[in-house]
Nucleic acid binder design. Structure first.
Lengths: 138, 138
DNA sequence: CCGTATCCAACTAGATACTG
DNA sequence: CAGTATCTAGTTGGATACGG
């Protein structure tokens, strides 16, 4: 670089180019950044699911409590609907809303990106770890 | 599972429609799901930044520690480069890699989605809160 | 200026037990 | 089956102080 860009003066103004005070990033991460939210959305993208089905579909195994909190949170934000059917035993079905499907498409794009670039990322990590043997906070 | 819903047979197969064991969602969230990663990437999308510039650009104010951890993590994954210039006082510049720019585009799409739908989300929340006065875990 | 180290507060997540 | 409640462990994040 050096020679090329020379006097930096303003560069690109030091703001992220989505203008307003908030880029939406913070809220976005707060909303679907939970450990399970993305999984629930992606699973629900395949169709309506009952509570237990959701729980069993998520890799790693989510506890009842966390799944409850997650779906409630998503329901509150209008990303999915919760339908209680007065059968016995009780049955509760979760389904994405229009907005939820919309959002899930984007999440899926990110997930697909991750899968595609995983080899490259793994390689970078190995190189970094080799170059920084004593790096704490990995 | 007595009378009502009987044998469900297969429904939609109970798997998320990205076939493999992992949808990439978990790793993705682990990677850029941190409180600051997305912000750093978006800010860096506007161009090279020095440490202090990054810190001041991020709304809410990130501590030195967290910013250090975040950029190190992103550097390790190959999403940005860290260049130390032996000047005095020291100067360290961060810049997105090709892969980082790629990823940031998708994050930006999600952030833009959030901004566009924020009114709807807010409305849903208000309705939900009104309907569930005693909801703990908001 | 750019970090690292230490300590501490807050939040997140799991296990378990109990209710409708 | 589908939660709720409680308690606890682990992790994340912030403040501060200090070193290169």
């Amino acid at each position: 670089m050096s020679a090329g860009h020379t006097d930096v003066t303003e560069e690109q103004e030091l703001v992220c180019d989505t203008p307003p005070d908030e880029c939406g990033v913070r809220d976005l991460v707060d909303r679907i950044g939970g450990k399970w939210s993305a999984y629930v959305l992606v699973e629900l993208a395949a169709g309506m699911r009952r509570f237990k089905e959701l729980q069993r579909a998520i890799p790693g195994g989510v506890s009842q409590r966390m799944l409850t909190l997650t779906v409630r949170h998503l329901e509150r934000d209008g990303l999915l609907t919760r339908t209680v059917r007065p059968t016995v035993p009780p049955q509760v079905e979760y389904e994405l809303t229009e907005m939820g499907r919309d959002c899930t498409t984007l999440i899926r794009a990110l997930a697909d990106w991750e899968v595609a670039h995983r080899p490259a990322i793994t390689a970078h990590r190995a190189a970094f770890d080799a170059a920084n043997p004593g790096f704490t906070g990995r």
